[in-house]
């Protein structure tokens, strides 16, 4: 009897400490989430604050008198002289074209590396690893000189070319695992049934690699949408051609004190990506899980 009561008391104490530990861990988790979110929250909150609330002795987390004035100024383009949509259009055009181009080229390469054994395979893979690490602020000098002679400066086409090239190594590197995960038996069965290489590609390889294609194109998208050095250098003085990162930097550089409008511009640049990420995150996870089951 007594020993049973004692052990139940001990069990209860252990249960309590476990609960306390779990509560402590959850608290730490919330702290991490708070630190990760706070700068983003502060950006959005400032974007809704009227000028009188930017500089206060005691900062308030939420705007007392929320206003859309900052967003209106950015969208109308009353500060830079060109409306926000122009820059969004430039960014989306460059990013989407580069992502599509690099995904297509990378898919071909990934099939080669993921499906075949050939002589220069290891050399090629090591080349990809090294190329990924070359500093962009170094290469930009040579590319600037080359693009100047090809009249690709102040043009979005030049940016698309560079983004396609620089997104390739990581895209191929990630995509080849998805290609390698497609079971060989499926292909062989299709081949026995008389399907040609093209048919096997469209009917078997592509549908099975599609989730991987989505996952890798997210990385290419984030790279191209955020890229700064090349856009800064190539687009130079032609304000109308600016992509969003350069636009936000230019906006900030010219209106150093207009924090409401700067944060509104930054919000309009950043929040779409973050929403896109939150939406696609579940999909990415689903794709990965499906891949694991199939593999």
């Amino acid at each position: 009897m007594t020993s049973a009561a004692l052990s139940s008391g001990r069990r209860r104490r252990r249960w309590l400490t476990r609960r306390a530990r779990r509560a402590g861990l959850n608290l730490l988790g919330l702290l991490v989430a708070l630190i990760a979110l706070f700068p983003i929250f502060w950006m959005v909150s400032t974007a809704f604050k009227p000028a009188t609330e930017w500089y206060t002795l005691t900062p308030h987390p939420l705007p007392a008198h929320p206003t859309l004035g900052n967003f209106r100024a950015v969208i109308n383009g009353s500060v830079v002289g060109i409306p926000y949509w122009n820059f969004l259009k430039n960014s989306l055009f460059v990013t989407v074209t580069a992502v599509v181009a690099s995904s297509l080229i990378a898919l071909l390469a990934a099939i080669a590396v993921g499906r075949f054994r050939f002589r220069f395979r290891t050399t090629y893979l090591i080349m990809l690893l090294i190329v990924q690490m070359l500093p962009q602020q170094a290469l930009v000098i040579a590319l600037f000189i080359d693009f100047r002679s090809l009249s690709l400066l102040d043009s979005l086409v030049g940016l698309i070319l560079v983004y396609t090239a620089f997104a390739l190594p990581i895209t191929i590197w990630m995509l080849r695992n998805f290609v390698a995960a497609v079971p060989r038996e499926l292909q062989e069965a299709a081949a026995i049934d008389g399907a040609g290489p093209m048919r096997i590609f469209w009917r078997i390889l592509l549908p099975l690699v599609a989730p991987g294609l989505v996952a890798t194109s997210v990385f290419a998208f984030v790279f191209a949408y955020n890229e700064f050095i090349f856009a800064l250098t190539f687009l130079g003085t032609d304000t109308a051609k600016f992509t969003l990162p350069i636009y936000v930097q230019y906006f900030y550089g010219r209106n150093g004190a207009d924090w409401g409008a700067i944060m509104a511009a930054s919000t309009l640049f950043t929040v779409p990506v973050l929403v896109f990420f939150l939406l696609i995150q579940r999909r990415l996870r689903a794709g990965l899980v499906a891949g694991a089951v199939k593999g």
Partner: peptide, 26 residues
Amino acid sequence: MAAFVSSVSVLAWATPAVSASVIFVW
């Protein structure tokens, strides 16, 4: 909780360098 914390943290990772820098300057 892990799913919540990791998806919120990924937002910090996805924030463009230009935005993050401008925000921190502010």
